[in-house]
């Protein structure tokens, strides 16, 4: 009861925590305020209806959502393997799959070329066998975003799995459920909030992805030009346009995250 009261009035936060927390808020929020102050409000309509803005925004939303879907399908099983299985070299595996977190995304883009490019190990085979080339296509955008964003989902789901009580799974096993059924019916529902939070992180990272995308997918309006790429190029010629585009991206991602939180994530991810 007393904890609730504390939450409501804001009391009970010790000063040594309050001061740095307030500084952190200022540090994170002031640059956004700077964008709002510098925004070319009077010319905003013209900036936002400029050709290419709509298609860049649509491409960003579609590709980030696709990258999140791919990350869920592949990343949740990987997180389970990292958290629950007893395969050898798990620690090394975990370090390897989180490398994209620290790799400069531009280098990630070059690495994707070396595997999936026309001259790449897998890419040249695809080209010769099926006549398919990946770079400079929307598929390449999704691949680049997935490469950079999936580790966020994996790390977050693995954390949820480790925190979840494994005894429920043991009980399910003693009641005759095989491991696949246990995973579907017991484990997954138990870590659902962690999966949702990881998916949101992954989506947000994919939406903001720039370096790997512009390297591996290039930049072509309608096909591969996402919002961050459009912002970077606008910055070269017309900083006001870049600020306007950033505001759109900001508004859309804030709205989406708030909506998701209220609709599906409940308090777990708040």
């Amino acid at each position: 009861m007393s904890r609730r009261d504390g939450e409501r009035t804001g009391a009970g936060v010790p000063l040594p925590l309050m001061v740095p927390a307030a500084l952190a808020v200022a540090f994170l929020v002031l640059p956004l305020a700077g964008l709002l102050v510098r925004a070319p409000w009077s010319g905003l309509g013209a900036q936002l209806t400029a050709p290419g803005v709509g298609s860049a925004l649509r491409l960003s939303l579609v590709s980030a959502t696709a990258a999140t879907a791919v990350s869920l399908v592949l990343g949740v099983p990987l997180a389970w393997v990292l958290a629950r299985s007893r395969i050898r070299g798990r620690a090394v595996l975990r370090a390897l799959v989180t490398v994209p977190l620290v790799l400069p995304p531009v280098v990630g883009g070059v690495a994707l070329f070396l595997v999936l490019g026309r001259q790449g190990v897998v890419g040249s085979w695809l080209d010769e066998t099926f006549g398919v080339t990946i770079p400079f296509t929307t598929t390449a955008v999704v691949i680049a975003q997935t490469f950079v964003a999936m580790p966020f989902l994996v790390v977050s789901v693995e954390g949820a799995l480790r925190a979840a009580d494994a005894r429920f799974e043991d009980v399910a096993a003693t009641l005759g459920a095989d491991r696949w059924t246990t995973f579907r019916r017991v484990t997954l529902p138990m870590v659902a909030p962690g999966v949702a939070a990881g998916a949101v992180l992954c989506w947000a990272r994919a939406l903001g992805e720039f370096g790997a995308t512009i390297t591996f997918a290039g930049n072509f309006p309608g096909t591969t030009q996402t919002m961050p790429v459009a912002v970077y190029l606008a910055l070269q010629r017309e900083p006001e346009a870049a600020v306007a585009l950033s505001l759109v991206l900001l508004a859309v991602s804030l709205a989406t995250l708030l909506l998701l939180r209220d609709r599906w994530l409940g308090r777990a991810a708040a």
């Binding site: 070059v110 400079f136 512009i214 390297t215 997918a217 290039g218 930049n219 072509f220 591969t224 970077y232 190029l233 070269q236």
Partner: peptide
């Protein structure tokens, strides 16, 4: 063109 690069060095790469 298939891509509009951010600078000449990126195109060369």
């Amino acid at each position: 063109p298939d891509t509009f690069e951010a600078d000449a060095r990126a195109a060369l790469t």
